[in-house]
Design a protein around this nucleic acid. Structure first.
Length: 663
DNA sequence: GTGGCTTCAACCTC
DNA sequence: CGAGGTTGAAGCCA
């Protein structure tokens, strides 16, 4: 089933090239809404007279299409919106190249316009009913929730574009540079924040936040240039220049000295090793170099982003926001090719949390050069997992959690349900293979990207299982291949033991499954009545606050006919797991009302029987040593078990805290 | 408002 | 796997 090519789906959403969004204004459900400038968190409360945007409150009335759409669908016309010349839309979904529909050359003003409207050679399906949930005020100045929403939305959209490309749902290669496609759609629809250029901290961005693409810094207003290393402004009144440096990115392209966690020797731009400047020349005191020079005397705060080689995926880079620095000194020195290079000494403003320092410490722990403070056990799994799980307590004298047997998977005493679809793929299942039955059960959308990142939540995720004929290395076996991250069980200050990771974690990364013994409701009731047995229980019948992880999946035409159901779990019968006596690291993950991890039901088959598993994935990018938490949910009222046993006061401390959670 | 220019990307190929 | 080529996009500036 291919939603892009299905004629019946076309009247719901229109198909258009992604590029024309460039000309669209931000989309608001009510005509004057975007003009009201208010400062309010996305969940409210809102000032009177201001109607917040869906999805933070109840949905608006059915929104009107934001632009007159009909010309876009006419194959013969060139499709004109807002005066801009657009390529016509390929209603067949983009499989056909747009040669015949190319606008006449005379209508092109310049070569650049020609190039732009012509560049994308196929179509990405856009849902025009999507309402951008970021107010104009929030586009100007962010806060933590807006930043999280945009970050999560950005990466979800990017993953979905990768998935469409992998599965062949859109023309091959259309989603290359999915990072830029996603950012382009967000920048043009107003799904961005901190547009206002500013000196110093960015509202909603915290020291230690991590990113995986330079363009993310742009979408969040941390660092405006898409490539350049120095962001600066000219504060001039009339004609005289008054430069000030705003932020810099140090990612190893030039010969910076980044050994010290509080001092960074940064190189100026130009002249040297860039591809564009083939012949080396002296750097000039212009643009970013001039701005940094001026900031030496001005003494203003400059944001610093450190680009670090990703130790997990060696061909990617992690960008870490390292907080505020001041430029204390500058000089000129000879570079490798004997040309003049500017150098700037940036010193970290005191009182900010150590993050780059932590990063470097963790690397030493992993190399075995040093150990974390309060190390109790180097591996609490005693080799059961393929990778050690460290036990650390630098809070008090407790020597470890109460006794349990480390068990890495789920212990079923009877099959979860009958089933009989297994794949017959050779080697590995292919995202674009319509004959793979595991692909079919996932409705044609391969659940993971090429580097094993979950694309979106699903009512049920089907992985290949022991009965499938593909190899164990098949890309559709992510949650069953054990721990990949370097995890640590540690003593928290006020919530017992917790779980965190030495490695940074990218959004959508599999963390662990909930291991333990599958029990029935009667056993659970008995355990509760015995008292004290209500810890280390995972119960799918606890009620979760609905949330959208892949918010911007809605911007693209949905996987199902009703995208609002995409992320609602469909669990045939409740699953209760006890990790009291047998369990893995998941039993240590604490509850939080504003969590960074979620669970996803995963089913796979063995010998004509299906087994349900609970897999945990990162909701956001998670910096090293950040506690991993998920929402335990609350016990439903119709549960026949005494609710009081199953309610516990919450200490998560987040602004969204409900005050209690379920057990 | 526009197009040229610059630029510590990201990806792909060889 | 590294070098090098290709495609890119934001924002300053003329």
């Amino acid at each position: 089933m291919d939603p892009v090519h299905s004629p019946s789906s076309i009247d719901k959403t229109r198909v258009m090239d992604v590029k024309p969004l460039r000309s669209l204004k931000p989309i608001f459900p009510y005509p004057n809404q975007g003009l009201i400038l208010v400062q309010a968190p996305p969940s409210g409360p809102f000032p009177s007279g201001y109607t917040p945007f869906y999805p933070f409150v109840s949905p608006p009335p059915p929104p009107q299409p934001p632009v007159a759409p009909t010309p876009l669908r006419t194959p013969e016309s060139s499709g004109v919106i807002n005066g801009d010349v657009k390529p016509p839309v390929d209603a067949s979904g983009g499989s056909e190249r747009r040669k015949r529909g190319r606008p006449p050359k005379s209508s092109q003003k310049t070569n650049v316009v020609e190039k732009r409207s012509w560049r994308s050679e196929a179509s990405i399906p856009i849902n025009h009913n999507f309402v951008v949930p970021v107010s104009l005020a929030q586009q100007e100045d962010g806060n933590r929730e807006v930043v999280d929403l945009i970050m999560t939305g950005y990466d979800g959209l990017r993953r979905r574009l990768c998935q469409l490309d992998d599965t062949g749902a859109i023309s091959r290669g259309l989603a290359k540079r999915a990072d830029l496609k996603a950012s382009n759609m967000m920048m043009t629809t107003g799904f961005r924040t901190n547009i206002k250029r500013r000196i110093g901290a960015i509202p909603g961005v915290e020291v230690g936040d991590i990113f995986f693409f330079r363009i993310e810094l742009c979408v969040l207003g941390i660092h405006a240039p898409s490539m350049a290393g120095i962001d600066y402004m000219n504060l001039r009144g009339e004609s005289e220049e008054d430069f000030v440096a705003l932020s810099i990115v140090s990612s190893g392209y030039y010969d910076d000295d980044d050994e010290d966690e509080n001092v960074l020797i940064y190189s100026g731009q130009g002249g040297g090793p860039t591809v564009m400047d083939k012949q080396a020349s002296d750097q000039k005191l212009v643009r970013g170099n001039l701005a940094l020079q001026r900031s030496v005397h001005r003494g203003n705060e400059v944001r610093v982003v450190r680009g670090i080689k990703d130790g997990i995926n060696l061909n990617t880079k992690v960008y870490m926001y390292d907080g505020l620095y001041t430029v204390q000194d500058s000089w000129m020195q000879k570079g490798k090719s004997d040309t003049n290079i500017f150098k700037y000494k940036l010193v970290r403003v005191p009182g900010q949390p150590s993050v780059y320092g932590i990063w470097k410490s963790v690397e030493k722990w992993k190399e075995g050069v040093s150990s974390p403070a309060g190390l109790v056990l180097p591996d609490l799994t005693s080799g059961t997992e393929g990778i050690p799980v460290t036990l650390v307590n630098d809070v008090d004298n407790e020597k470890g959690p109460s006794y349990f047997t480390y068990f890495p998977s789920l212990r079923y005493f009877e099959p979860y349900m009958q089933s009989s679809h297994t794949c017959k793929c050779q080697n590995s299942c292919n995202p674009g293979d319509p004959n793979c039955s595991c692909n079919q059960t996932n409705k044609g959308d391969f659940p993971y990207t090429g580097n094993s990142i979950l694309v979106s939540r699903k009512p049920m995720l089907y992985e290949c299982g022991p009965s499938c004929q593909c190899y164990p290395g098949c890309k559709n076996r992510v949650s069953q291949t054990g721990l990949k991250l370097r995890l640590e069980v540690f003593k928290t200050k006020d919530r017992g033991w917790g779980l965190r990771s030495w490695d940074h974690i990218r959004a959508g990364t599999f963390i662990c499954e909930y291991a333990g013994e599958v029990i029935d409701k009667a056993s659970l009731k008995q355990k509760l009545q015995e008292g004290g047995g209500n810890e280390y229980i995972f119960d799918t019948s606890r009620v979760l606050e609905p949330f959208r992880w892949n918010e911007l999946g809605l911007l693209l035409k949905g996987i199902s006919d009703d995208p609002s159901q995409d992320e609602v779990y469909n669990i045939p019968s409740p699953l209760v797991i006890s990790a009291k006596s047998f369990g893995n690291v998941a039993r240590f993950m604490n509850h939080c009302c504003y969590p960074n991890v979620f669970w996803q039901p995963v089913m796979y088959e063995d010998n004509n029987q299906s087994y349900l598993h609970i897999a945990f994935f990162a909701m956001r990018h998670i910096p090293p040593l950040t506690e991993l938490t998920y929402d335990y949910g609350v016990v439903s009222n119709d549960d026949d078990i005494n609710n009081n046993f199953r309610k516990r006061k919450c200490f998560c401390g987040s602004s969204q805290c409900r005050g209690f959670f379920g057990l």
